[in-house]
């Protein structure tokens, strides 16, 4: 087999490159597969799943801000059963890592979904305890370090699949929450989810999102995300998947330098639907240009004088 300098290994799962489509921006891969071969991606984190089908929030659900996108979709999804029965057969024909992102109203929901996913070919379960757009659950489990530790520990009992805990930036100290997830048995961490935000129309005097507040993503939050990845990298030993406003290969390299083993690309998929594979190709050129043995050689190699 030929040597692949772009391959990364995260908690025992091999990715052909470190670029993963971020949850909530890629649905289940079907739409983007009409535009390009999604096997070019290291992995896909699917749309956040709930136990039952969820309708999401009333529209408008999206607003453009300066260098950012504010969303309040509210986890509209077909539910875990439809995912397993109708979406997985398509994803199983692909040679890209499938990460199932799950969000529950209760601890029991998370455990149930983790158990159900254990029977599937999903490679990693991403625990979404950081969605700012739902009333119950979601972020409620992700704010206090003790809650983060408890939900991680509880879900771990229900699955042998690697568990990746997705952290919220809307917390007192993200490093504390990262350590709590690690202590609870998390195999990896992904960060950051969206930053709580708001957009207002001065003419109508109304918030643009029906939900009033939403989650901010895109290049506007990249500096926040980089600082948090660096902070968490220095606090835990488990691998980190970094995200927050990655638009280019050099953005991705910045996250890897700050300690990420891989990255997720989200909002960039909206600006340019071809951006995720283009970022993967660009990272390959970065490796060649900087004469690296492999992409992992870059991990955490930020030079701080």
């Amino acid at each position: 087999m030929t040597y692949n300098p772009m391959e990364v290994n995260i908690c025992g799962v091999s990715f052909k490159n470190p670029v993963i489509a971020a949850s909530g921006t890629f649905s289940f891969g079907f739409e983007f597969s009409k535009l390009y071969d999604i096997d070019r991606l290291g992995g896909i984190s699917v749309k956040g799943l709930t136990r039952e089908r969820r309708e999401g929030n009333p529209p408008p659900r999206i607003a453009e801000t300066y260098g950012g996108v504010l969303n309040g979709v509210g986890l509209q999804n077909p539910g875990i059963d439809v995912f397993i029965n109708n979406m997985m057969p398509f994803l199983e024909t692909k040679r890209t890592v499938v990460i199932a992102n799950i969000a529950g109203d209760t601890e029991a929901d998370y455990c149930y979904m983790a158990e159900r996913l254990s029977e599937t070919k999903v490679s990693i379960i991403e625990l979404n305890i950081s969605c700012p757009n739902v009333k119950r659950g979601g972020l409620a489990f992700g704010v206090k370090p003790e809650d983060v530790g408890a939900i991680t520990k509880a879900v771990k009992k229900y699955t042998k699949k690697p568990l990746m805990v997705k952290l919220s930036p809307n917390v007192a100290d993200i490093a504390e929450n990262a350590r709590a997830a690690e202590a609870g048995g998390a195999d990896a961490l992904s960060l950051i989810n969206t930053v709580s935000g708001m957009a207002v129309d001065a003419e109508t005097r109304r918030p643009i999102l029906k939900n009033v507040t939403g989650g901010l993503s895109g290049p506007a939050i990249k500096p926040i995300a980089l600082a948090m990845v660096w902070k968490v990298y220095n606090a835990v030993k488990i691998p980190i998947v970094g995200m927050g406003g990655i638009m280019s290969a050099s953005d991705a390299a910045e996250f890897i330098l700050c300690g990420a083993s891989a990255v997720q690309v989200g909002t960039a998929n909206f600006a340019n639907p071809l951006s995720a594979p283009q970022i993967a190709d660009g990272l390959r050129r970065y490796v060649d240009k900087h004469k690296l043995r492999d992409i992992s050689e870059l991990k955490g190699r930020l030079i701080v004088d």
Binding site: G24, T25, F26, S27, E31, F32, K34, L35, K47, R53, E55, G56, N57, P58, P59, P60, R61, I62, A63, V69, N71, V73, Q76, N77, N269, F270, P273
Partner: peptide
């Protein structure tokens, strides 16, 4: 008409309420 994110069906931003759900 709706405010859209991706425009290709992946982000669920442009919901329209129908008798069959969003």
């Amino acid at each position: 008409e709706a405010r859209m994110g991706c425009g290709i069906g992946a982000c669920y931003a442009c919901a329209c309420a129908t008798v069959a759900g969003n």
